[in-house]
Simulated scan of single mutants.
Amino acid sequence: MKFIHVSDLHLVPKGDKLWGLDPFVRLETCLDDIIKLHSDAAFVVISGDLAEKGDVLAYRQLKARLADFPIETHVMLGNHDDRAHFLSVFTEGPKDDNGFVQSAITRDGTRFLFLDTLKGPPSSAGLYCAQRQAWLKTELAAAGKHPLYLFMHHPPFAIAHDLMDLIMLDDAEDFLALLHGHAVRHIFFGHAHRPISGQFRGMSFSAPPSLVHQLPLVSDSVATIYSDEPAMYAVVHAAADKIVVHMDAFLNRHPADMDPQAERGTWH
Rank of each mutant, 00 (worst) to 15 (best):
G93A: 04
G93D: 03
P94T: 13
P94N: 14
P94M: 13
K95P: 07
K95T: 10
K95M: 15
D96Y: 14
D96R: 13
D97F: 14
N98S: 14
N98D: 15
N98A: 15
G99W: 11
G99Q: 11
G99K: 14
G99Y: 12
G99T: 10
F100E: 02
F100D: 06
F100A: 12
F100Y: 15
F100K: 08
F100S: 10
V101L: 10
V101P: 08
V101H: 07
V101T: 13
Q102V: 09
S103N: 01
S103V: 00
S103Q: 11
S103E: 04
A104F: 05
A104D: 11
A104Q: 13
A104S: 15
A104C: 08
A104W: 03
A104G: 09
I105R: 12
T106E: 15
T106A: 08
R107Y: 09
R107I: 10
R107P: 01
R107H: 07
R107M: 05
R107D: 01
R107N: 02
R107V: 04
R107G: 03
D108Q: 03
D108I: 02
G109D: 03
G109Q: 02
G109E: 02
G109F: 04
G109H: 05
T110F: 06
R111C: 00
R111W: 09
F112M: 07
L113F: 08
L113I: 07
L115M: 04
D116K: 04
D116F: 00
D116Y: 06
T117A: 06
T117E: 02
T117S: 06
L118K: 13
L118F: 05
L118G: 05
G120V: 07
G120D: 01
G120Y: 10
P121S: 13
P121I: 09
P121H: 11
P121A: 09
P122A: 09
S123M: 01
S124F: 12
S124Q: 14
S124R: 10
A125Q: 07
A125Y: 02
A125C: 13
G126I: 09
G126Q: 12
G126T: 08
L127C: 12
L127V: 10
L127N: 09
L127W: 12
C129L: 02
C129T: 07
A130D: 14
A130K: 04
Q131G: 06
R132E: 06
R132M: 03
R132W: 01
R132F: 04
Q133D: 05
Q133Y: 06
Q133M: 10
Q133W: 05
A134G: 10
W135Q: 05
W135R: 00
W135E: 09
L136A: 01
L136R: 00
